[in-house]
Write a protein that binds this DNA or RNA. Structure first.
Length: 220
DNA sequence: ATCCCGAGGG
DNA sequence: CCCTCTGGAT
């Protein structure tokens, strides 16, 4: 089989997966709470190795105390640390939040930049965070958000053989229409939480089981 | 013990 | 590639 038709097969499969997941999760949206692009950026930095539910428990108090980039840039770092502590990695996260906000104030007029390259200059921001902010704050589909769920499900479904998230993203982008890139990530995240869990995937009630090479077909 | 919408450094 | 950063939930 040629590389072109193998990709065609995977593309067909990816589109079928997306169609089914759109039906299963018709109202899937970004589950982080925020009012502004800066707040979404901060919430996304906090979401590293942490559930969104936990992030949403700390951000109301954080944004009440420090509502924008200027406030976070001028904050006492230890106060940020205290407010975000329960999300884990709290010293790095506080430092990155403040560092990113200072750069936003000094270089970008207090607004989150809309260019991928500029976002990647911010401390604590790599492609995953940049993709989330661009897609949900600005409606810009610069890439495919690859978090732990998107990586795991894309691998299990046989759409990538990579484990490095940047390589997973490169494999996924040509398989999906650009306008569906964030739809893909959001639905896979929902499905990863509800069905295709890391430890005990519920293959017996998965609507993608017939398409999935990783499904446990053994009968007990 | 393992995982959660990661990123940076070696 | 590897390791570290960190707390909470299961």
């Amino acid at each position: 089989m040629s590389g072109t038709s193998r990709r065609g097969f995977k593309r067909q499969k990816a589109l079928e997966i997306l169609t089914r997941l759109k039906r299963l999760y018709p109202d899937a949206i970004c589950s982080l709470k925020y009012d502004t692009p800066v707040q979404l950026l901060v919430a996304t930095i906090l979401s590293a190795q942490c559930t969104d539910e936990r992030v949403n428990k700390v951000t109301p108090a954080l944004f009440d105390r420090f509502p924008d980039a200027a406030a976070l840039a001028g904050a006492d770092i230890s106060e940020i640390e205290t407010l975000v502590r329960s999300t884990g990695f709290y010293r790095n996260k506080a430092k990155n939040i403040q560092g990113a906000c200072r750069a936003i104030v000094e270089k970008f007029g207090g607004q989150v930049p809309k260019q991928m390259e500029q976002l990647l200059e911010l401390p604590g921001v790599a492609r995953k965070t940049a993709n989330v902010v661009l897609a949900h704050a600005y409606g810009i589909n610069a890439g495919v958000t690859v978090d732990t769920h998107v990586k795991r499900l894309s691998y299990r479904l046989g759409l990538t053989s990579q484990t490095n998230p940047v390589k997973v993203e490169r494999d996924l982008m040509p398989l999906l229409p650009q306008e569906d890139w964030e739809n893909w990530s959001i639905r896979l995240i929902y499905h990863g939480r509800a069905v295709c869990a890391a430890r005990k995937p519920a293959c017996d009630r998965c609507i993608l089981a017939d398409l999935c090479p990783s499904v446990d077909r053994t009968v007990s």
